[in-house]
Design a protein around this nucleic acid. Structure first.
Lengths: 220, 220
DNA sequence: GTCTATAGATGGATAGAC
DNA sequence: GTCTATCCATCTATAGAC
């Protein structure tokens, strides 16, 4: 065996490998969020990440696996934040948060992520895009991973015990639509329609608007 | 017409040509709605339509042009129905329809189309899918074709003259999110989450639910 | 371990026969 | 006008050099 170990450039063994994998991950997330899954090739990703073409398959196995890994990681992070906020609201309000508190816990993390000065802005666009463009594997995960939604549905039923459960589910569905519509293109269109008076930059103001609308809808 | 037992290969000049073009159109709309733009090849379309491979390029120029033609036709039809309902509501109410009337004019056509027994169900899925997966050309059309949305925004401002215009635009944005979330996959997920108690088959009931939620949100 | 070269598959589009 | 055969670009994935 050759033994040139002490003369290797940097300790490329672990750090460089992790850096390459992370570069691929970030480049892929960014390109997918901006252009869609099918419109981004492995060549685009490795060029953006400034790594060699084989890196995607070496580190992630395949393009699909790369996508799936990004998707799982980001959705897990987002839903963890939501669950934590819901838990805090329950602790503060004595185990029975109001409808507005529950909705705030659901809205705040994605809105924070999507704010212009947040480095997770691109991750939020990735998630929204993945919801509608993801492959069968990802859709199956979405369909089955309803545990975090169940927490919110149950909290809403506790906050409105007078409302039939069917109504709670439908209204939750409408609320989800409000969130999933927050794509770049939709904000852009709204900005154009309104003649430029709508500004999504003010996250706190947008959060208030969404809460006002959704809370009223839930109280109807 | 009166064409009982003439010969087999009849004047294929015009009728057969129109039939082929229509078959391509229908097959493409159906496959795109079910599987997404990038996941459907020209070969898939011509196989589904039972026509030869060159038909797409002969009748439509390119795959992209075919997509664009379907998109323009369907969105024009849908928005025409909406505009007609808004016009009728204005005529009935003496030129100043209520918020609920306006929202009903916006919600009813897509919900009718999407109902299980409607032959436009697949067209509605096509439109929703095209909104998020369409190419740059289609997104540019969406971005600029806000004329039909302006009608609704203006009607809402007339119905709520006390509300700042900025608020009207944001709430309209939320309402759009409610509609665009009505995809097969989302209904499916809701059905799964609710343990099967939500049923989107009853279109009138769903329309009522959406109107209750959106109207309350607009009145907040 | 990294990177190049290439295999292997599929796609859109089209020329040319009839 | 219809349809087949084919061109050529592009993609993912991988073998093999270093």
């Amino acid at each position: 065996m050759t033994d040139p170990l002490t003369q290797d450039p940097p300790e490329a063994t672990e750090e460089a490998q992790a850096a390459t994998k992370q570069a691929v991950f970030n480049a892929a997330e960014r390109l997918f969020a901006l252009h869609g899954f099918q419109n981004v090739s492995v060549r685009d990703i490795t060029a953006e990440a400034k790594v060699n073409l084989a890196s995607v398959n070496y580190h992630f196995g395949s393009k699909d696996s790369l996508l799936f890994e990004i998707f799982r990681k980001r959705t897990a992070e987002l839903n963890r934040e939501r669950a934590r906020m819901l838990h805090e609201a329950a602790a503060q309000d004595g185990a029975k948060p109001t409808v507005r508190d529950i909705l705030r816990a659901y809205f705040t993390p994605p809105l924070r992520w999507a704010s212009p000065d947040n480095d997770r802005r691109i991750s939020m666009q990735f998630i929204i895009r993945a919801r509608s463009e993801g492959n069968a594997e990802m859709r199956e995960v979405l369909r089955n991973d309803v545990s975090h939604l169940e927490r919110f549905a149950n909290a809403l039923m506790a906050a409105r015990p007078d409302l039939p459960k069917e109504d709670v589910y439908w209204r939750l569905h409408f609320v989800l639509g409000m969130i999933h519509n927050n794509r770049f293109a939709e904000f852009d269109r709204l900005h154009h329609l309104s003649g430029g008076i709508t500004r999504e930059q003010d996250v706190e103001r947008l959060l208030s608007r969404m809460l006002d609308f959704a809370e009223a809808g839930f109280m109807a």
